[in-house]
Structure formats: C-alpha cells, structure tokens
Design a protein around this nucleic acid. Structure first.
Lengths: 129, 129
DNA sequence: GTATTGTGGTCTTAAACGTGGACCATGTCC
DNA sequence: GGACATGGTCCACGTTTAAGACCACAATAC
C-alpha cells in the first residue's frame, strides 16, 4: 500500500504492468500448481515445497486481486479455504504452457551455456580488440 | 556466487530452473528490448527507463551466462559494448510473444478485477458460510 | 486431562536484495 | 578548465524476503 500500488492503475504498458505482478518468482509456479485442480493453502505449500507461508499468502492475495484466482472460504470446523483459477487465470495457462514447453526443450542448452561460461567461456566476450 | 548458483546446475525441474533466471522482473524486459536490434548498455538503460545500472548489469550478465545474449566488446576510444540475442535468445521470443499478446488482450480485465477488489470486492470472498 | 497435530494465516526478526548516486579512466566538446 | 559520454562497479540505505514463533480452534493420541 506504498507508492507503487497507488500508481499501478495507470501503468501505460500492459506487459510491464503484468510482469510487475506475475513476474515475481512464485506467481507462475502457483498458477501452474492450480492448473486443473482446486487446492487448499497447505496443499499448495507442500506442492511447491520451497515457498514460505508468507510468500504464498501474499502471492495468492495478489493473484486474487488481479482476478487470476478465486478464494472460497468454507466455515467448517477446522476452517477450510480453497483456491481455484478463474476464467482469466485459465486463459493465462495457454501462454504459460508455451513457456513451460520452451523450458523443457531448451533446458539442456542453457545448462550447457552456463557450464561453458563457468569454464572461462569469456574467450568470446573479450575477443574483438 | 553464493550458494544459490552452486546448486543451480542440478535443478531437477526445467521450468523452475528457468523461472529462477528469467522470472526476475527485468530479464523479460531486456530480452524484449533486444528483440531484432543490437543495443548498447546505455541504450538499454534509456529504453527500459526505470532499471538501475546495477540491475541491468547483473541481468545482462546472467542472460549472457545462460546463453540468451552475446556481449561484444569493441576496443574503441570511448569504449563500446554491444548486446545482441543469440539463437537461443531469439528462439525464446516465441513463447515470450505469446505472453505479451495475452497481456495486451487481458490487461483491461485485470485492471477491472483490481478495481473491483479495491472497492470491497470481498463480497464474494467471504460468501460461503 | 493433557499433549500433539492440523487448519489458515499473521507477526517478528534478521538476512538478502534492489536503488540512487558517487566514482573511475578515457576522450570530446565548449 | 569543466561538463558530458562511455561501461560499469561500489557503497549506504531502504525495501523485500525467509524462517519460525504464534494464534484460536477442533480432533486425535496418550
């Protein structure tokens, strides 16, 4: 609720605006975990594994705020909250899948590039003199 | 060069691995800025606008390390460095464009959802009792 | 009866991260 | 001589994040 959120409504560039929200390391993961099935808070916590409660809470709140996720509270005895994708959220899975596929296909190339870089791959970087 | 980078090589899940790298608010923006044309450091700085030198430097370094970007140093008088996409980087633009299109198409819906949420849209959230 | 577990979160504290600005060496312009 | 431009790095500071304690409640275990 600091400055950033105040002006967020007037972001002129859509991709910037959206990246500011979902380009935060966890949102895509949460969206992916929610693909197809409804999940509860602690289920997500376990599914994702290395996200903290706080970050999951915050991430879900933002996704809900932006209309990607619907939060449903059941006033049962142990208290129960379910998270599910909205239509908007589901429609986002398309582009997201594109990314996931690309990641699968090119992961090896990246690991390779990384290793080459680590072994003084700068041979190329400093070349043109 | 702390712990994180040490273990990065053995990330079992490709999408996780890649998200850790390019899901950092700036990488996609830089990649997008590099689409089609070669750019110099300060050009990128100006194009993107609100990125700090440090983050641009760090982001470019990581993109280079992962093989998305090629850095070319010309030993001219005022010193000149050019950044360009590699084949790998270019191949990534496909899925990225998918995201950008989606962002353009659904931006309005998101702003709307956000506004609804701000105006006590919780009517739905607390409903099921 | 008392301790433990599980529910969905929030709060605290400390560490990690990002930012703006100063700074560097070099060369040109005014 | 002073300002600007080049490509960055470094520092101090403020924000963000993470791990874990904590809460209230109910069921289950002992």
């Amino acid at each position: 609720m600091k400055g950033k959120d105040e002006f967020a409504f007037e972001q002129p560039c859509p991709i910037r605006d959206i990246l500011d929200r979902i380009g935060d390391q966890w949102s895509l993961l949460v969206l992916d975990a929610l693909d197809g099935r409804t999940r509860r808070f602690n289920e997500l916590l376990r599914d994702i594994g290395d996200i903290s409660k706080q970050m999951l809470s915050k991430t879900l709140k933002r996704l809900e705020q932006d209309g990607f996720v619907r939060r449903t509270l059941y006033a049962q005895v142990p208290l129960r909250v379910e998270y599910a994708l909205t239509d908007l959220g589901r429609s986002f899975l398309g582009p997201l899948q594109g990314l996931v596929c690309w990641a699968d296909a090119h992961h090896k190339a990246i690991v390779l590039a990384r290793r080459r870089y680590a072994n003084g791959g700068d041979a190329l970087a400093d070349a043109v003199l």
